[in-house]
Design a binder for these strands. Structure first.
Length: 856
RNA sequence: GCCGCGGUGGCGGAAUGGUAUACGCGUUGGACUUAAAAUCCAAUGGAGUUUUUACUCCGUGUGGGUUCGAGUCCCACCCGCGGCACCA
């Protein structure tokens, strides 16, 4: 009696068998070739698993299953990125402890993931909010601190007034906090910063060594935003001060008709007494401070500014006296917070000059016009390269030459130098929140005094050497402790600094972390000098734990996160780098860059064996709701994977997610289309239940089978999962035809290539076909190789064209010569008709493809 | 504004410069059924010629170009998506 395909009856069963057989567990130091596959571990939100997760995880599950069958020692791990704001917000709302919420959410996620038959190695499950785990997150911070890469700054930061939290640039989208959509304002706060900018060049350069999607590389490069140019010093008339300006167009320096500084620029304070209109200037600065970053950038067209009356800068090239302005379109944190205004050759400067009546002086001419040497009044800025005019001794040079020459001149005369600027800023690493890793530092007044008394004796140069130690009064201070006087690291053996229990998770109104309210925890002893000290109450951002989690999976396999780090060097060496990392495009500028930075640092201090953590990076496209909008509770268009699994089975969901469209493109969910995949699996089930379909196979179907093996194998490697599935469907369509049979072994080959997409179904049929017992599995079999000889075809359909238009087709031998093809083609009735009375001017013959007669 | 990607049937999408629309969905017709669902079979880009067998023309965002031949290459433009955005 045949039974209908019922995924419910088979999926749970095989999941248990696989777990018992431990076929998904990786073996450290196995002699097999290693293959480390990684997906972005989920944040266990209350929303549960999203079909977007499924797309990413299934894709690498396909790879993982295929690699195991190809004989690799595969590591495909999973864990939880458990710290995060939504959990904390939910805790505030409900009064339930974030830890409990997280545990509950993890349980749901785990059940959902397991129901999909994903071949994760659950024995290495990790959780970033586990003290054993975040002990190491803290350790990495301490290493950065020790090496002078963590520092404190009182800086204007993006501040979300609703969440009462400082934000990284990366968390601000369109001037709004990405999580809660509240308009962000500027606020000065003491923050821990990480010097990611020290790695800017490496982060660009080492992209050469890795295999990332091209668009990911470009996006990272643009984000880092390196530009080469010249730094020029403009002396202030009758003053010891000078303004340093960065420009990529030093060739235009003879066209400078003003300098503009950012409102935060120190020159304003320094020259306060000399600025004749100081009140006006102060008012302008106050006003621009009140504007949010959003307003400042939104009102792009309306550039405002105020002159610093009585202040003049001297152009070092021609000694010209030029006015100085303050304007909030100049960014304080880039290029020294000052720009030279060249209205004739920069669009923004042109607008600014028009508005305030500054002189527009042409110093670069387009080549064509230079030759006719006609000067003309500029209607708009000419921003391209050209030939220099009105530029003293540099007139007549090309822009490119002039940049070289003028920079040389400046270097010689001490007025400037070659310089590189980055858009990338240092990473704000403090959060004023509860649900994160405590920053493992204390503040000690006594140590502060000791360090400050001593600091002046240390030569500048020594403060730049990473990992330096300084002995003062029998205490050793690390570079970080010298650079940040009073801040003392918690020793490694005292880690982790555990998150204490709190009653209220609400941030204080001042913006400080809720931890500040726990006096018992805050007040402590300095681990160095044993004087009273205060703990840092800021916690780390949610990216901290995800910076290194791919190493945590490896540590988990060795020992349960015990110190010291030397325990793990061997296992890092075996597994790293990650061979293939798949995740969302939205993490390209944040997580991907941050984790590369941290990994590079770990490489520099000798912890990890390679410069880059990820050898290959791909991205899946977003899955939109059925209505074409982003899936969201508020639109009511969320597809719940549980319901799909319940109704159609995990295999259908998996196959559909791979089939729905090109893997890296955004795609709209369609339940109707998904049913097509369900039908396909049903057809597979039915056909393999039919004993009459097993038998002597024809050459035709053998060829088709091996072509399918080839196509599926190749398409998987190219992440063209959609066409791989199409090929599987085509094969089944062919096999469904009357008189088509397969031998048992051939049927097995098909099941193997299907098994990576629909593991449960394939396993079930495979077992029935070969009468296997439960210690055997299709996944312990070898991935099929296609038969090269077999798929060499003997015949092909010759296309006959007249002037490039298809007029006839005929089957011929594969090795037919041009002459033979010509004869055959010419004698076809249809072709005769077209050729009669016409002269053949040319014949084009493409072997295995076509013949084309040209008559015109 | 800058950078990147894309525009193909009613829909999702296939196509190393060589048969455009594979595969799937939908639709229509048929088989099975008391009926429906499910399943199976067939047709399915548009317009036209023809009693039929058949045949012709037009078709990959728009306009040009290169080529025996262009969805694919080149130029210009339009539209959509993603990222960055006063970065000097």
């Amino acid at each position: 009696m045949r039974k209908k395909y019922n995924p419910k009856l088979i999926e749970k069963k095989w999941q248990k068998v696989w777990e018992r057989l431990k076929i998904h567990q990786a073996k450290d130091f196995s002699k097999k070739q290693k293959q480390y596959l990684l997906i972005e571990f989920p944040y266990p939100s209350g929303e549960g698993l999203h079909v977007g997760h499924v797309r990413s995880y299934t894709a690498l599950d396909v790879i993982a299953r295929k690699r195991r069958m190809q004989g690799f020692n595969v590591l495909y791990p999973i864990g939880w990125d458990a710290f995060g704001l939504p959990t904390e917000n939910y805790a505030i709302k409900t009064g339930i402890h974030p830890k409990k919420i997280t545990q509950k959410n993890i349980k749901v996620f785990k059940k959902q993931l397991k129901s999909l038959g994903l071949s994760f190695d659950w024995s290495r499950e990790i959780n970033t909010a586990d003290p054993k785990y975040y002990k190491w997150t803290q350790w990495i911070f301490l290493k950065l601190f020790e090496n002078g890469l963590a520092y404190q700054a009182e800086i204007p930061i993006n501040w979300c007034p609703k969440c009462k939290i400082g934000l990284a640039n990366e968390e601000v989208i369109d001037g709004k906090h990405e999580r809660c959509n509240t308009e962000v304002v500027q606020k000065e706060l003491r923050q821990w910063m990480l010097k990611i900018t020290a790695y800017a060049d490496h982060l660009i350069k080492d992209l050469d060594q890795v295999d990332f999607l091209e668009k990911i590389k470009t996006q990272q490069i643009n984000w880092i935003g390196r530009s080469e140019g010249t730094e020029v010093k403009f002396k202030i008339q009758n003053s010891k001060f000078e303004i340093s300006v960065f420009t990529t167009r030093i060739d235009t320096i003879f066209g400078v008709t003003a300098l503009v500084v950012a409102p935060e620029h120190e020159i304003i304070k320094n020259l306060k007494s000399k600025i004749e209109n100081f009140k006006e200037v102060r008012d302008y600065i106050e006003k621009s401070k009140r504007k949010s970053e959003f307003e400042r950038t939104k009102l792009e067209k309306e550039k405002t500014g105020v002159p610093l009356k009585g202040i003049f800068a001297i152009n070092p090239l021609n000694q010209e006296k030029i006015p100085v302005w303050v304007a909030d379109y100049v960014i304080a944190t880039y290029g020294g917070g000052a720009v030279m205004v060249v209205p004739a050759h920069d669009k923004r400067d042109f607008d600014f000059a028009k508005r305030y009546g500054l002189e527009i002086r042409e110093v670069i001419m387009p080549k064509g016009r230079y030759e006719t040497s006609k000067s003309q009044i500029l209607e708009e800025a000419f921003t391209e390269d050209g030939i220099l005019v009105n530029s003293g001794e540099f007139s007549g040079l090309t822009s490119e030459r002039a940049r070289e020459e003028i920079t040389k001149w400046l270097e010689k005369s001490g007025f400037g130098k070659r310089a590189v600027q980055y858009k990338l800023r240092d990473w704000i690493f403090s959060r004023q929140h509860y649900w994160g890793e405590p920053i493992p530092l204390v503040f000690c007044e006594n140590c502060k005094r000791i360090v400050e008394n001593f600091k002046s004796q240390i030569p500048e140069s020594k403060l730049k050497i990473q990992n330096s130690k300084f002995k003062i009064q029998n205490f050793y201070f690390s570079l970080g402790e010298i650079l940040n006087p009073g801040w003392i690291a918690i020793p490694e053996k005292e880690l982790p600094v555990k998150l204490p229990y709190v009653e209220s998770y609400k941030p204080s109104e001042t913006g400080e972390s809720p931890l500040i309210k726990i006096e018992k925890w805050v007040k402590t002893k300095c681990p160095k000098c044993k004087s009273p000290a205060i703990r840092e109450t800021d916690t780390m951002p949610n990216w901290a734990g995800s910076n290194w989690y791919y190493l945590a999976y490896l540590m988990k396999g060795i020992s349960d996160f015990q110190f010291p780090i030397s325990k793990y060097k061997k296992v890092f060496k075996y597994w790293m780098p990650v061979d293939w990392y798949n995740g969302g495009m939205e993490h390209t500028n944040l997580h991907l860059l941050y984790s590369r930075f941290i990994y590079k640092f770990l490489y520099d201090i000798g912890v990890v064996p390679t410069k880059e953590p990820y050898q290959k990076r791909t991205s899946q496209g977003i899955v939109l709701g059925e209505d074409g909008r982003k899936m969201s509770k508020s639109f009511g268009n969320v597809v719940n994977p549980d319901e799909i699994v319940k109704k159609y089975g995990a295999d259908t969901l998996r196959v559909y997610e791979m089939f729905m469209g090109p893997f890296d493109e955004t795609i709209t969910w369609s339940t109707k289309s998904m049913i097509g995949c369900f039908r396909f699996l049903n057809r597979v089930w039915e056909i393999f239940q039919n004993k009459e379909k097993i038998g002597q196979s024809t050459k035709e179907i053998k060829i088709k089978l091996h072509q399918t093996i080839k196509k599926v194998s190749e398409d998987i490697e190219a992440t063209k999962f959609n066409t791989a599935i199409a090929a599987l469907m085509e094969f089944i369509n062919f096999y469904s035809q009357e008189n088509q049979k397969l031998s048992k072994n051939e049927a097995g080959l098909f099941l193997k290539i299907l098994s990576v997409f629909a593991p449960h179904l394939a396993e079930e049929i495979y077992h029935r076909l070969f009468n296997l017992n439960q210690s055997q599995s299709i996944f312990l079999e070898k991935w099929p190789e296609y038969d090269k000889k077999l798929i060499k075809e003997e015949e092909f359909e010759l296309v006959i064209q007249i002037n490039g238009k298809v007029r006839d087709k005929i089957k011929v031998r594969i090795d037919i010569s041009e002459e033979e093809a010509k004869e055959i083609a010419k004698n076809r009735e249809k072709i005769k008709k077209y050729l009669s009375g016409k002269e053949i001017k040319k014949v084009i013959f493409v072997p295995k493809k076509l013949i084309n007669f040209v008559t015109v």
